[in-house]
Write a protein that binds this DNA or RNA. Structure first.
Lengths: 239, 239
DNA sequence: TATCCGAAATTGGGCTACCCAGTTATTCTA
DNA sequence: TAGAATAACTGGGTAGCCCAATTTCGGATA
């Protein structure tokens, strides 16, 4: 039974760009389960064997779907004890992809705007909360830049390490994760398409005032310095 | 070969809280591949059969790992054509979980702070960019509140819909997604532990000034109104 | 010689069937 | 009735198979 269910049934005429994977439709089924109110946070899922029969799919695909959700902390699996829902909202499968795949100029600027929003805040918090060790972590990339040859320590890494350190020093792990995520997307989306190290060294100089403001424990100055940093680079982004 | 590799080998004495799944270690292997510089964005992965032999795991677990990464847009699978890397950074398996699972008071406040940061910005942008339809979407939950009985339209939904609409009206999908994510986490983390609708109606009244400011196209006023909203509720959070 | 076409090998998508160890429920015993 | 032994159940993992889409590559053709 359950005829091998061809991955791409007779989809009309021209097959769409991407044929849907089975595990994605399963995730949608799970989402429907939650939205219908049949399942709430903390509840236990039906067993693999039950769902397998209900949705007419094999266990492996079921597990693929649950694994994807599990990695995002939405579902918890207890060997021998069943699976449990841990969230109230199941994200649509291509929610992430849609944003990540678009690497046009517009998206890049949108990421930039989002980054500025959160990183300015983080700089202010860092000025207020940074421990000595965290401050050192912020300064390290800058000193690297002075000491070493430009090529020895890749430029992108300097930038990444600096912003990461500031994010961490904010003392707010949630904010930190948001920043890390945006930073990652930014690098993927179009860092390579940026100025070929034109006045790159000059831009890097922007980092120093930020460090100084944080070091002196002045939140407003730190926020301003970070704002300037983003403003300066924003102009470069529009060459 | 590859002895069934018991899920939990003879882990020393007391087994830790959570025994590691195989697919997680595979993700770490993939991450190592990327960090070692053996693989860059756009490159093609070795085939399932090759990796299966290299890491001594079965194909299903390999696919579980890749699926989890695929859903996050980090990997792309082309049936018959191989798998391709789409990012430069592979997140650690419990990067998400660690934050989502902690639902203590401290985390709740951290989420709150992050939300304030991005939502204040979104309110300002919405005042500048909101279309007529988007403005209507913001006003709808408020009118619902007036018209209907308190129970007919669940309170949590009003709040959720309002903030979601503002986020969308910002015109920045990236910012919108960040807000949606934080909003979701907030609701999961501890919304239920909040005041049992004490002066809830009064708090909802805070939404009106935000709407008015956005409607009148005044970014600063909108940002201020949103800031006040968060400040007011912040006090409530500390009862 | 350059180009096009078709067969063959390759690759991911999916399924069935099986075994294992931890968890939970049940039953039997003291 | 409390407690221990046992059976049933559940997720973790493996092996092997078939299918359809994609590459690859060699041969026929212009």
């Amino acid at each position: 039974m359950a005829k091998p269910s061809s991955p791409t049934p007779s989809s009309d005429a021209f097959t769409p760009i991407r044929n849907v994977r089975l595990y994605e439709t399963i995730i949608e089924q799970i989402a429907a389960l939650v939205e219908d109110g049949q399942l709430h946070s903390g509840d236990r899922f039906p067993t693999e064997r039950q769902l397998q029969e209900k949705w007419r799919v094999s266990r492996p695909v079921l597990r693929e779907a649950f694994r994807a959700l599990e990695m995002q902390g939405i579902v918890e699996s207890r060997p021998g004890g069943g699976r449990y829902l841990r969230a109230e909202r199941i994200p649509h499968p291509d929610e992430f992809r849609s944003l990540r795949l678009s690497s046009d100029r517009e998206t890049l600027l949108q990421i930039w705007q989002a980054r500025e929003t959160v990183e300015v805040k983080a700089a202010g918090l860092a000025a207020a909360n940074a421990s000595r060790a965290q401050l050192a972590a912020i300064g390290r990339p800058l000193r690297m830049l002075e000491t070493m040859t430009p090529d020895a320590y890749r430029r992108g890494d300097v930038n990444h390490d600096f912003h990461t350190a500031v994010a961490r020093a904010s003392g707010n792990p949630v904010l930190e994760q948001v920043i890390l995520d945006l930073l990652g997307r930014f690098n993927e989306a179009g860092f390579k398409d940026l100025p070929p190290a034109k006045d790159w060294d000059g831009l890097q100089a922007d980092h120093q005032p930020i460090y100084d403001a944080i070091a002196s424990g002045d939140p407003k100055a730190a926020a301003n310095a970070m704002t300037n940093h983003f403003k300066t680079l924003h102009e470069t982004l529009e060459d």
